[in-house]
Amino acid sequence: MRAQEIWELTQRLEPFLHLKHVNVVRHLHHQTVITRQLPEQRNGEQTSMPQYQILMEYCSGGTLHSYARDNIMSASLIQKWTQQLVSGLTYLHKQQCVHRDIKSENIFLSTPDAHNCDLKIGDLGNVKRIVAQFTDSSEISCEKGTYEFMSPEMITGNPALVGRRTDVWSLGCVVIQMITGHAPYFYKVLPQGKEVQLTSGTAIMYFVGKLGGMPRIPNGLPEPMRRFVERCLIRSVRERPYAPDLQGDAFLLEREADQWTMPQRNNAQRN
């Protein structure tokens, strides 16, 4: 990276150093270091290479994606973690930070003890995407599966509509994944009435962006949980709630969520 590129990158990431919330991954330190490369064969001289290093808070529990895949979650744990995600999003949005890539791979468990850890929102402001602008690494910018969490306005690319409520749509998709153990499924009804599951990113994006489709909400959910997910997945951006509006939702305030019965995993993906 050239010195000018590092300076520009520093300016883009500097605001993240000031963010501090229990449900947001901390950016602790940014620094530039100079490394020495091996002598080049053509002239035998050593060359220096500046590198930009980002030190972030370590979350030893791994990602929500891995935990949801490997563990059946109770209603009370889903409620607790949803409360934490809403709290983290509310804070980020108040700091004028729109994430735009909320998904389970970007959410981390602070410790391996799931029932006593905190969920933390990471990859703030699409750090991978920002860094990729200044590097040649295709690995950094590769984000698989994001389309399953993308809102209609993100898919259609309408910059006037993409904002804080875009993250709320993605939150609804994350809750679905906590319930089912996998990213949301999408089904299209054919003219003869048969349903077909959409599996390619192109098909899902066309279904959501052009045909008015949405993720399949699992059947058999406790009613407050279902209504919460439905609120997050309102297609109209102007009618979709902001994150602070969700803090008073009945699902998050329910005191007897530990008594709710959740659908079986193998049936949760279909209505």
Rank of each mutant, 00 (worst) to 15 (best):
A3I: 10
I6D: 02
W7C: 02
E8I: 02
L9K: 10
T10R: 14
Q11S: 06
L13N: 01
H18A: 14
L19T: 06
H21L: 01
V22M: 08
V24E: 04
V25N: 06
L28H: 10
Q31D: 10
R36E: 15
P39K: 08
Q41A: 15
Q41P: 03
R42C: 07
G44F: 00
G44A: 06
S48A: 13
P50V: 05
Y52N: 08
Q53V: 15
L55S: 09
E57H: 08
C59W: 09
C59I: 04
S60T: 12
G62M: 06
T63L: 08
S66E: 14
R69Q: 14
D70P: 02
M73K: 00
S74G: 09
A75W: 03
K80L: 14
T82I: 08
T82G: 00
Q83Y: 04
L89Y: 07
T90V: 02
T90Q: 10
Q95V: 03
H99D: 12
H99E: 04
I102C: 04
E105H: 13
N106I: 01
N106W: 11
L109D: 04
L109Y: 11
T111D: 07
D113N: 14
D113W: 05
C117G: 11
L119E: 04
A132D: 01
Q133W: 00
S137P: 04
S137N: 09
S138V: 12
S138N: 12
G145D: 01
E148D: 00
M154E: 12
I155K: 05
N158L: 04
P159S: 02
P159I: 07
P159T: 07
A160Y: 07
L161G: 00
V162E: 09
R165T: 10
V174A: 03
I176D: 00
Q177A: 08
Q177F: 07
I179H: 03
I179N: 05
T180L: 01
F186I: 08
Y187H: 11
L190R: 13
Q192S: 12
K194N: 08
S200C: 05
G201H: 03
G201R: 08
T202I: 14
T202F: 14
A203D: 15
Y206S: 13
V208P: 07
P215H: 10
R216V: 14
R216Q: 15
I217P: 00
G220V: 03
G220I: 08
L221T: 05
L221F: 12
P222V: 03
P224C: 09
E230M: 11
E230N: 08
S236H: 12
V237F: 01
R238F: 13
E239N: 13
P241W: 10
Y242S: 15
R255W: 00
D258W: 13
P263E: 08
R265V: 05
N266W: 13
A268L: 07
